[in-house]
């Protein structure tokens, strides 16, 4: 197992280098000159040229890339053009908020999705199965900004149960987490249901019944652990989608997280912040995938070490 984890950790290094390259290339193709934007309206050509030189934007692309990688490896993501603060510092003040939001959302995705899926599968074709599957269909189909605005309207504006925007207490967390977790929960519910239905027809479930075990033990011990194997993969993928979703949800609920930072930076052509933000989000995604792989293997030891 330790060998497996070390090997997987080493494998993430080329992935991360690739991520840095892709982020860098994308930023090269973004229209607009950051030096012009930074200099402001009516700046002279000399000022723009001086700023461009300060930022190193007058260097050949390859040189810029090598310098960038070198800095990244030292934990230096550059200076924000807009705030003149180190990008690392900007990200680190925003990141915890986004991580809180993401964890709350993935929690909703997993708990709600799996419970709904299990109920659906064990009571196949019942009224609860149908209602859960209809809700799941809605959850998958409804765009998160739409769901977010609806929740905000009913629960905050009309019923005053939760604050409309902002971040701080658990009450602030409820609606954004539901908004962000809903589609994942719907997908996990559908996946858990089909996986459970497949598993409860297996011979080893019949063996478990023939042992005289109680129905709950059969479902939650013997069936669930097998049924979760494909679900774990889906949850891992959902986490990536969820990270992307924070951009929208943070904007809807005016939460000062990483997603909103990136959106603002894109609007301002604040290249170092965009690069840094995307890079940090990518690293988180790669690490989550690593975690999923390790979890996956501990659930299913048939997966070989290689």
């Amino acid at each position: 197992m330790t060998v497996f984890i070390i090997r997987r950790l080493l494998q993430t290094i080329p992935v991360l280098l690739g991520v840095i390259l892709v982020v860098f290339i994308i930023m090269q193709f973004v229209p607009g000159d950051p030096a012009v934007l930074l200099a402001g309206d009516g700046a002279t050509a000399e000022t723009v040229a001086r700023i461009r030189h300060q930022l190193g934007l007058d260097q050949p692309v390859l040189v810029q890339y090598v310098q960038y990688v070198g800095h990244v490896l030292q934990g230096d993501l550059g200076i924000s053009i807009r705030s003149q603060l180190p990008v690392m510092k900007e990200i680190m003040t925003r990141l915890p908020i986004t991580i809180e939001l993401a964890i709350a959302s993935i929690f909703i995705t997993i708990i709600l999705g799996m419970l709904a899926g299990i109920i659906s599968a064990t009571k196949q074709y019942s009224a609860s199965d149908f209602s859960i599957m209809i809700l799941a269909l809605l959850g998958v189909s409804l765009p998160s900004f739409c769901l977010g605005l609806m929740l905000m309207y009913f629960f905050s504006v009309k019923m005053h149960l939760f604050p409309v925007t902002g971040w701080g207490t658990w009450k602030h967390m409820v609606l954004p987490a539901i908004t962000l977790g809903a589609s994942g929960a719907a997908i996990v519910a559908r996946m858990t249901r089909s996986s459970m239905l497949d598993v409860i027809r297996q011979d080893y479930i019949r063996t478990a019944k023939a042992k005289g075990l109680k129905p709950n033990i059969i479902v939650y011990k013997h069936a669930l652990k097998n049924a979760l194997i494909p679900v774990i993969t889906v949850v891992g993928l959902q986490f990536g989608i969820l990270l992307g979703g924070t951009v929208l949800v943070e904007s809807v609920f005016a939460i000062n997280g990483l997603g909103r930072l990136i959106v603002e930076a894109i609007r301002m052509r604040d290249l170092p912040v965009v690069q840094g933000g995307v890079l940090v989000a990518s690293i988180i995604f790669v690490l989550v995938n690593l975690g999923v792989d390790i979890l996956y293997r501990s659930f299913n030891k048939r997966i070989s070490l290689d």
Partner: peptide, 16 residues
């Protein structure tokens, strides 16, 4: 009363 089934390959739970 115990029972042994036909399919030994699939009658045991793979994750325990």
């Amino acid at each position: 009363i115990s029972v042994i089934f036909q399919e030994p390959m699939t009658s045991l739970n793979p994750v325990y």
